[in-house]
Design a protein around this nucleic acid. Structure first.
Length: 560
RNA sequence: GUGCCCAUAGCUCAACCGGAUAGAGCACCAGCCUUCUAAGCUGGGGGUUACAGGUUCGAUUCCUGUUGGGCACACCA
């Protein structure tokens, strides 16, 4: 292995060294090798707890095992020294020169720095947003879009072949409801009228749809063109038009949010292509269904559900989870051994049902398939008070409202920067503020500062590839080097845990380390060798900032 | 009532699938611009990780229970 490629991922290099040592010391043990970055510098650059793990099975003292492991460790040019500490930690110190080499490794790898091979080119399909085409996207969809898209970027960087998919529930009761609401608006009836149905959609946008339909406008949504008939009695035509109109609106919202999908799947297509019927007959054939009180039930309790679920209602229609099962069978047949569904936690009850339906099909789908990432609710704050409505949608805050008010970058950052499991408070005033309170600007500012310095220098970037990085010796420089070294591990963790917020936290740290360095040092100094070394370092830092910001889908401005 | 998620500094949040003295930012206090962007930096105080047990060399992390908050409990999606 070349020196350069070792430097590109020090942690996995060390992990391999310990794997070999383990093979010598205790070949019959299959302990997991965990390499950590100690919090204290005195504990070295990396530490391994393998000896303590082995103490019990081997019935020896951890420190004796640690000694044996160290003796069996293959030689490596990047290791300065190895120590045993505490209860049996093995602490490794990396040579200064190996750390300095990260600068060249990053500059050579460019946009590819941080990419790892965890996925080994395997396919993963990520379904996210999947809003019903019954209105504009709301903040919750925005969180799904930000988390899902960032997750896709992370998985791609981790070596997965990613397909982004959006599923439109364009069939079923809510579409009927939409059609009815638009129809009433076509007839001039407003939501404050006593005759307005209980569950009717009340937002202003319904009136926009009705007006466009009556004006015989043409809507181009994705793959279809639909022209309004202007006939308030033609329910079929209103239905088509309304769905197309709102799909277009959602598409525009997503485009404004910088999110693109590879595949759009339609619930209506599952019906028209006979996939829903097929799933029903397969489930009946499986023996897990029964008829009761005029309905067809699936015995989901066979697969861990707390009660059985109706598949076909008395009125002959299917409940929503039947097409869901058909949809996921379709995903499986398309060859996606790994599927991740990003959804709001308010839909978590569907998980058991979908998985149960897939198990009942008995077609070889693993019990825990597919994976889910559920994000908790978002509340929006402005002037210290919760905002609950938007003018256009009425009952909820739209994604468009946020993008228009605080911008795409800040919206994406704040919606992706929290652990999906935690509830999120979106503070509009904070997201808007152009100050150090705002992490988005803090990070982007760091990048802009570097760009300015490099521009003032005005030299050939290629010259930096020849910089003598051994001149990078200050504590500030050491810290920045370490930060760059850590980047691939952040991607690994984020991909492993499906936790894109780790990227946001890493970037904040990277920016902080850089700002400190910037404040304490000068770059455009007289000594050419030192100048080149420092410029190479901050150019590498800027590269990593660009790479990380790209994962979040956020711009890296040259000037601010 | 049942299931899922959450609880860490005054506030907003981290903590590398059990590790060594639990970390940042904001706010508060005290400093730093004739110098490459002060949208920045330096220093300081601030904690029984909600509570009670358990598992072990070692727990914010895993298990049980309690309290508090969110979500879901349809022949709606």
């Amino acid at each position: 292995m070349s020196h350069m490629s070792v430097v590109l991922n020090l942690k996995s290099h060390i992990s391999e060294l310990f794997a070999q040592a383990l093979g010598v010391v205790a070949p019959e043990q299959d302990a997991t090798i965990l390499i950590e970055r100690p919090k204290q510098v005195a504990h070295g650059d990396y530490s391994c707890n393998l000896a303590m793990q082995l103490a019990k099975p081997l019935r020896k003292s951890p420190r004796d095992i640690a000694r044996a492991l160290i003796d069996a460790l293959p030689p490596s040019a990047v290791i300065e020294k190895v120590e045993i500490a505490g209860a049996g930690f093995i602490n490794l110190f990396i040579t200064k020169s190996a750390k300095q080499q990260i600068v060249h490794a990053v500059l050579h790898a460019g946009a590819g720095y941080g990419h790892i091979h965890q996925g080994q080119g395997r396919s993963v399909q990520v379904e996210f947003v999947s809003a019903n085409p019954t209105g504009p996207l709301h903040v919750g969809h925005g969180r799904g879009a930000a988390v899902g898209d960032c997750l896709c970027n992370v998985l791609h960087a981790a070596g997965w072949k990613v397909t982004r998919e959006f599923y439109y529930n364009d069939a079923g009761a809510q579409i009927e409801n939409l059609m009815r609401s638009v129809q009433l608006r076509c007839k001039g009836i407003t939501p404050d009228d006593p005759s307005w149905p209980e569950g009717g959609y009340r937002g202003d946008y319904i009136n926009d749809v009705a007006r466009a339909y009556m004006a015989c406008e043409t809507v181009e949504a994705d793959d279809q063109h639909t022209t309004g008939r202007g006939d308030a009695e033609d329910t079929e035509s209103i239905r088509h038009f309304a769905v197309a109109y709102l799909r277009r609106e959602q598409d525009l919202d997503l485009r404004a949010f910088n999110v693109e999908f590879d595949v759009f799947s339609l619930e209506s297509a599952l019906y028209s292509e006979g996939k829903v019927e097929e799933v029903v007959s397969r489930l009946v054939a499986s023996g897990h269904t029964y008829e009761q009180e005029g309905a067809l039930w699936l015995r989901t309790t066979d697969f861990g559900d707390d009660k059985d679920r109706v598949m076909r209602k008395k009125d002959g229609g299917y409940t929503y989870f039947v097409p869901d099962v058909a949809y996921h069978l379709d995903k499986w047949r398309r060859g996606f051994v790994r599927v991740i569904n990003e959804q709001g936690a308010d839909h978590h009850s569907t998980i058991t049902r979908v998985r149960a339906g897939l198990q009942a099909l008995d077609v070889g789908i693993p019990a825990g398939w597919p994976d889910y990432v559920l994000h908790q609710m978002v509340t929006v704050l402005k002037n210290g008070e919760e905002v609950k409505i938007s003018k256009r949608a009425g009952s909820y805050v739209t994604l468009r409202d946020l993008i228009d008010e605080v911008g795409c970058d800040a919206t994406r950052y704040f919606l992706a920067a929290r652990h999906p499991d935690s509830q999120l408070v979106f503070d509009i005033d904070l997201a808007k503020s152009k100050s150090n309170d705002n992490p988005v600007y803090y990070i982007q500012y760091a990048h802009a500062r570097i760009s300015t310095v490099l521009e003032l220098w005005g030299g050939e970037r290629l010259a930096l590839l020849a910089a003598d990085v051994s001149l990078l010796e200050s504590p500030y420089e050491a810290e920045l080097l370490q930060q760059l070294i850590d980047y691939p591990q952040v991607i690994e963790s984020a991909a492993q845990d499906l936790a894109p917020h780790l990227i946001a936290f890493y970037l904040k740290e990277l920016a902080a380390v850089f700002h400190s360095y910037y404040n304490a040092s000068r770059f455009l100094v007289d000594d050419e060798a030192i100048k080149h070394a420092r410029l190479a370092l901050i150019a590498a830092a800027a590269q990593v900032m660009r790479n990380g910001l790209a994962l979040l889908g956020i711009g890296a401005p040259e000037k601010m």
